[in-house]
């Protein structure tokens, strides 16, 4: 198992390296860099332009720029933001804290709603309740997450006259206000992921019900409750845990739009604004973090799966 883990880590490292290279080349391949933006329409004199390019290191060949950046990153330095003059690690870290809180709370809400929905649907397979839940699932899968957010905003305002506070505050500053502003983002992302959960759990229950050991358990006269908790639930728990990781990766993507909609200073919105401002160190650092988190989650799921399922341990 140690060798397997090492191989996976190595593969993830190579993928992260290649991804960072792809991002680096992409963001530098297009016209209109930060110097052009700073000097604006009028354009400065060539000497100023050249001095500025030199300052940002944009005058060197791209491969040199990449190697210099990579060297820094490997020493734990993500560089300095071109627009804010602050260390990228700090900016990205602060934004990630917001995203992480949003993501984890969303995961809790999605699990709390989606798992029971899926269990109920699976147990009532083919019956009315199942069809209703499946209908909800399809609508949930079809609705864009930001549109659910818009509808929740309109609905909350129209029905109970409530709107979230405008200013973001971190849980450390004002937990109550923080939760108030996170409520609708969590709900919109959470409802969407709950549907994914529900689909997955339903499928697991349906296939568990067809297994021989469940049929035997029913045939030997075990009470339904016992069959459900001891045989069905226990066996779908493992795939469920791994599915959780998948959901987290999904949430990581979903936050970009939701954070912009609800003006949350998270990683998604940071990426969006720094792409618009051509603040390349922040774009590169932020994406490196996103890719790193996604890849590590995948490895973590894999390890967890092996740990939880003794059959996978070899």
């Amino acid at each position: 198992m140690g060798g397997h883990l090492l191989r996976r880590l190595l593969a993830a490292f190579v993928t992260a390296l290649l991804s960072s290279l792809a991002v680096f080349l992409l963001v530098r391949a297009v016209p209109g860099d930060i110097v052009a933006q700073m000097l604006g329409q009028a354009g400065g004199d060539p000497a100023t332009e050249q001095a500025l390019r030199g300052f940002f290191g944009l005058d060197r060949p791209v491969w040199q720029q990449y190697l210099a950046w990579l060297g820094q990153v490997l020493q734990g330095d993500l560089g300095t933001s071109w627009t804010q003059g602050l260390p990228v690690a700090g900016i990205v870290g602060q934004a990630f804290a917001v995203t992480l809180e949003l993501g984890l709370l969303t995961l809790i809400v999605a699990t709390a709603i989606g798992v029971p929905m899926g269990l109920v649907a699976g147990i009532h397979e083919g019956r009315l309740l199942d069809n209703v839940i499946q209908g909800i699932n399809i609508l949930g899968l079809a609705a864009p997450v930001f549109w659910i957010g818009l509808m929740l905003l309109i609905g909350a305002s129209a029905l109970i006259g409530w709107s979230p506070p405008f200013m973001y505050s971190s849980p450390g500053q004002d937990l109550w206000q923080n939760l108030q502003i996170l409520l609708l983002p969590i709900l919109s992302l959470g409802l969407l992921q709950a549907v994914a959960y529900s689909q997955f759990v339903r499928q697991s229950v349906v296939s568990a019900l067809q297994q021989d050991y469940v049929r035997t358990a029913i045939a030997k006269g075990l009470p339904q409750r016992k069959v459900f908790f001891k045989h069905i639930l226990r066996n779908i728990l493992i795939p469920l845990v791994t599915f959780m990781g998948l959901i987290l990766v999904q949430i990581l993507g979903g936050v970009v739009v939701i954070e912009s909609l609800f003006a949350l200073p998270g990683l998604g919105r940071l990426l969006l604004t720094s792409i618009q401002n051509r603040d390349l160190p922040v774009v590169q650092g932020g994406l490196l973090l996103v890719v790193g988190v996604a890849l590590s989650l995948n490895i973590l799921i894999d390890m967890l799966y092996q740990y939880l399922d003794p059959r996978m341990r070899r």
């Binding site: 992260a16 991804s19 992409l26 990581l252 993507g253 970009v256 998604g268 996103v290 890849l295």
Partner: peptide
Amino acid sequence: DVILSFPPIILGVVITGVLG
């Protein structure tokens, strides 16, 4: 693998954001 290492929407935002 490289493409899949990004969440889809983030990749979409990066490509359209950078290219215009």
